[in-house]
Amino acid sequence: MPAKKSPAKKAPKSMPYEQGAWAHVFAPRAPGERRYWLIKSEPDVFSFEDLERAPKQTTCWDSVRNSSARNFMRDGMKKADLAFYYHSNAEPSGIVGICEIVREGYPDHTAWDPSHDYFDEKSDPDMPTWYMVDVKAVKPFKTMVALPEIKGDPALAEMALVKVGRLSVVPVTPAEWEYLCALGGVA
């Protein structure tokens, strides 16, 4: 009897971006347009200071295991975009610095490493599920902008960080970017 063929693997599915809540971050860009993001890390895992001490002040942003955050990194973030560096699960949590996207989305190899905390046995190197970007430190905030301050500020009530706080990568509007830079003393 002939061997049964296994079904062909398919790439991870996403809602068509033009229909989603974040359609604007996936829309075509004007020439030279920069977009803004917020990325989260626990300071005891990898702090902004750790990024500043990294070779060339650069690291890969790996181990993200949420499909929306993956889509932002894989399809939304572009080289030269800027991101707020946010310390999560800290007392207090908040924005502590700015980094730049220096390499666009590429497969996250940690998903294929059985010894890694974020190993995903279902992820396939030939059809990657998870992606990462490389980020480089730009500058620390002079003053941390803490989450309670962000949540209590009416000017930031629609911010993705406030609306969908669980995501480790979220978009930031240009107006939110300017406002938060001023609050952090880096305007």
Rank of each mutant, 00 (worst) to 15 (best):
K40E: 00
H24A: 15
E91C: 08
P16K: 12
M144D: 11
V162I: 13
Y118E: 14
M1I: 11
M144T: 11
P7Q: 15
S47H: 07
M15S: 08
M127Y: 07
G94K: 01
V170I: 14
P43A: 03
W22D: 14
V162L: 11
A83T: 00
A30P: 01
D153L: 03
M159G: 01
P128K: 02
D44E: 14
A155W: 02
S67W: 02
I101V: 10
E100T: 04
A3T: 10
G105M: 03
P92A: 02
D50N: 06
T129D: 09
M159H: 08
M73P: 02
V164K: 14
K56V: 08
P43L: 07
G97R: 08
K13W: 14
A182D: 09
A146C: 02
A175K: 11
E18D: 10
N66Q: 13
L156K: 11
G165C: 06
G184W: 02
Y118Q: 14
E100S: 07
T58N: 03
P12H: 07
W22V: 03
K9A: 06
D126L: 10
V96D: 06
K122H: 15
V64T: 10
A111Q: 15
S63V: 13
K13Y: 13
M1L: 13
I101T: 02
K9Y: 05
K78A: 05
N89W: 07
Y179W: 12
P28N: 03
D50P: 08
Y179K: 00
G105R: 08
Y118G: 08
G76A: 04
C99Y: 07
S47N: 11
H24M: 13
S168K: 12
R53L: 13
R74N: 10
Y131W: 14
D124A: 03
S88G: 05
L167A: 07
P7C: 10
F72A: 00
A90G: 06
G76R: 01
T173G: 05
E42S: 09
K4N: 08
D153A: 02
L156C: 09
D75K: 01
G152K: 04
D81H: 02
L167P: 01
A30Y: 07
V145F: 07
G32R: 11
K4V: 09
L183D: 12
V145N: 03
T173N: 04
P92Q: 04
I98L: 06
M73L: 02
A69N: 10
S47L: 08
C60T: 09
R74H: 12
G185P: 02
N71Y: 06
G94M: 07
E149W: 05
R34P: 01
S6L: 14
T58E: 13
K5C: 11
D124H: 08
R53D: 14
C181Y: 08
G152Y: 07
P171L: 03
V164H: 15
M144K: 13
H24K: 13
E100P: 00
